[in-house]
Simulated scan of single mutants.
Amino acid sequence: MKFGAAKFAIGQVVRHRVYPFRGVIFDVDPEFNNTEEWWQSIPEEVRPRKDQPFYHLLAENAETQYVAYVSEQNLLPDTTGNPVRHPRIDEMFERDNDGSYRARSNHAH
């Protein structure tokens, strides 16, 4: 994969390929930028490569909302069109008429 060629964009709604959660992307790292302990805590059979974009999501599952850090290989576009329930969405994004999210101009990434 070409360094820095992120497949997904800030404001895009995505879902995890394996686990049942989805979210809105609010930041992108061109490659892994978290702690070694965090990376090692992922079960080896699903542990992602470090040399790919990683995305910061305002995420939700059936029970709760939280911030997630997910590798590109584990994300898929979310095509449900359903709004994301995360409490920080309105602070960071505006929702367009077509249901997409656009970063608020007053929010610095």
Results as ranks from 00 to 15, higher is better:
E63Q: 06
M92Q: 10
F32T: 08
G11E: 10
R22N: 09
Y66I: 13
G4I: 10
V28L: 09
Y55N: 07
E44P: 04
H56Y: 13
A59G: 14
T80L: 04
L57G: 10
V24T: 12
G11K: 02
S41T: 14
H109R: 13
R85A: 15
G4V: 05
Q52L: 10
H107V: 12
K50H: 10
N82L: 15
T79Q: 11
N74C: 04
N33E: 15
V18C: 10
E36P: 04
P30R: 02
V24A: 07
L76H: 01
R95C: 04
V70D: 01
L58I: 07
T35A: 11
G99K: 03
P48Q: 07
P53R: 00
R104K: 11
H16F: 10
G81E: 05
V13Q: 02
P43A: 04
P48H: 07
Y66G: 06
I10T: 00
P20M: 05
V18N: 00
A59S: 07
Q65S: 11
E63N: 05
V14L: 06
N97C: 14
Q12V: 13
Q40D: 01
A108S: 06
L75A: 00
R17V: 00
S100L: 07
A5M: 12
N34A: 15
E36F: 09
W39A: 01
R95T: 06
R49P: 00
V24H: 01
F32M: 03
K2F: 04
G81Y: 14
F26D: 03
F26H: 04
T80G: 06
R102P: 03
T80H: 00
F32K: 13
I89T: 12
